[in-house]
């Protein structure tokens, strides 16, 4: 069975680098993007199982990107992340069908858990903050 493919999207280069390294070392096929625009192109060209995406990005922000991606890849599991704390964000992300919102700095164990449960039949359910 092919590895689960993950796309990491964040304008913070360090965030993308570290997450790519960590997820690769855990057996996933990982690619990185630094903007919503780049993410949309990549998702249109290749298949990804999971996307881990920052909400606050310059240009097209995370939630907007998510809505666009939904039209291109309806089955993509999306996990949002953010440096901000807000109930509105969680609500917005849920409405845009994100599976969870992680507040930075977050536990990697949580990320791995979400990704692995999304790969199971039925996938990851619900939005938890």
């Amino acid at each position: 069975m092919a590895n689960t493919t993950v796309l990491v999207v964040d304008d913070d280069v360090g965030m993308v680098e570290t997450l790519v390294d960590i997820l690769s070392a855990n057996g996933y096929d990982v690619a990185g993007a630094h903007s919503g625009g780049a993410a949309i192109s990549m998702v249109s060209e290749s298949h990804y199982d999971v996307a881990l995406m920052d909400i606050q990005m310059p240009g097209v922000n995370g939630v907007e990107t998510l809505k666009t991606i939904r039209t291109v890849a309806p089955h993509l599991t999306v996990i949002m992340m953010t440096a901000f704390t807000s109930d509105e964000l969680v609500e917005e992300a849920r409405q845009a069908s994100a599976v969870a919102v992680l507040f930075k700095p977050f536990d990697i164990a949580r990320v791995l858990d979400l990704i692995s449960s999304s790969a199971r039949p039925g996938g990851a359910q619900g939005v938890r903050a």
């Binding site: 360090g14 965030m15 570290t18 997450l19 960590i22 440096a83 507040f103 930075k104 700095p105």
Partner: peptide, 21 residues
């Protein structure tokens, strides 16, 4: 406060990775 959370997140990730390898 919010600005600091990004670099703190990256540092935490790095520590995790180093502990792994």
């Amino acid at each position: 406060g919010h600005e600091l959370r990004n670099p703190l997140g990256v540092m935490k990730n790095s520590v995790y990775y180093l502990e792994m390898i």
